[in-house]
């Protein structure tokens, strides 16, 4: 369509744009305004500039929540990537009944965070959990997740890997299947060992998919809320809070909308930063491959 006929396209675009503007964009921009004011229920807002940001960034509870979030992101996302990559290569190496196996691997995608937490709480229950029983049978320490914050974070990390591994696996497996067989053929004829082929063919060609999978998972793991809230509610004594739980507590438990809003924009900015960083890396990588 020529540009002068754009009016014809408006009715088709309107529903999507109206939904996004009214539910996401305008509220998010309004959150900037909230973040620059001190406000609570039934109290008129007063402009305080960047005070809320300073207050949040110097709050030990926020810093701990941020630290926990970063730990979960680094631990869970990278372990998930390693597992997903291993599985993708295993599947691509030829397995009998691949279609059925694929469906089995996808199954956790259907599971709600709520139910996943119920499963985990039972499997790792200190008294009756079968995984706890198995760990002690193997002579391994149990995860004392309801008292020990670091154990709780490990549990949450494992849970988040379990829920999102299907996504990471599919992205990597699809990218691996997209690599032409001829390349491996050619590498073999040139006398390359399977390890050489992996290093010189598989890894470079999987690069962009790995970056995409990492980017998505960093951004989504950074906003983790339900798993933590349902597992520990951030406790004991706020020791397992993550940034989203901190935000929730500020807003809905302490009615401190200003600091909650500042936290929200810190989250948005962190996501944007991650995204631009990766888009930049991806561009550089694509440009590098072209030479």
């Amino acid at each position: 369509m020529r540009l002068n006929k754009i009016t014809e396209a408006i009715p088709f675009l309107a529903p999507v744009q109206i939904l996004i503007l009214s539910v996401i964009v305008i509220p998010s921009l309004y959150v900037i305004w909230l973040s620059l004011n001190a406000s609570s229920f039934g109290q008129s807002a007063t402009f305080v500039g960047l005070d809320n940001y300073i207050q949040v960034l110097s709050d030990p509870a926020f810093l701990r929540a941020l630290g926990n979030t970063v730990m979960i992101v680094i631990f869970a996302v990278h372990l998930e990537l390693a597992l997903g990559l291993g599985m993708a290569l295993l599947f691509a190496s030829g397995l009998p009944g691949r279609r059925v196996l694929l469906v089995a691997v996808l199954a956790p995608y259907a599971v709600s965070e709520v139910i996943a937490v119920a499963m985990w709480r039972f499997l790792f229950d200190p008294d009756v959990g079968p995984v706890t029983a198995m760990l002690s049978w193997l002579g391994l320490p149990m995860l004392d997740w309801s008292f020990e914050p670091s154990h709780a974070l490990i549990m949450i990390g494992l849970l988040t890997i379990w829920l999102h591994l299907p996504f990471t696996f599919i992205i990597l497996y699809a990218a691996r299947l997209a690599i032409p067989k001829d390349l491996y053929e050619a590498a073999r004829i040139d006398g390359a060992t399977p390890f050489d082929a992996f290093k010189k063919v598989t890894m470079p060609l999987l690069g962009p998919a790995i970056v995409v999978a990492l980017l998505f998972r960093y951004i989504f793991a950074f906003r983790i809320f339900s798993e933590v809230w349902l597992m520990t509610q951030g406790g004991p004594a706020r020791s397992t809070e993550v940034v989203a739980v901190y935000l929730y507590q500020e807003a809905f438990s302490y009615n401190a909308f200003g600091t909650a809003a500042a936290t929200a924009w810190i989250m948005v900015l962190a996501s944007l930063l991650l995204a631009t960083g990766y888009v930049f890396l991806l561009r550089k990588q694509v440009a590098g491959n072209a030479h």
Partner: peptide, 24 residues
């Protein structure tokens, strides 16, 4: 139109919990 596709992608970077503050 091309610019608005970019916009659709950027919107996905906003965590859902952010909009609960004004929408609530």
């Amino acid at each position: 139109l091309n610019a608005s596709v970019m916009f659709l992608i950027i919107v996905r970077l906003i965590p859902p919990i952010v909009v609960t503050l004004p929408l609530f």
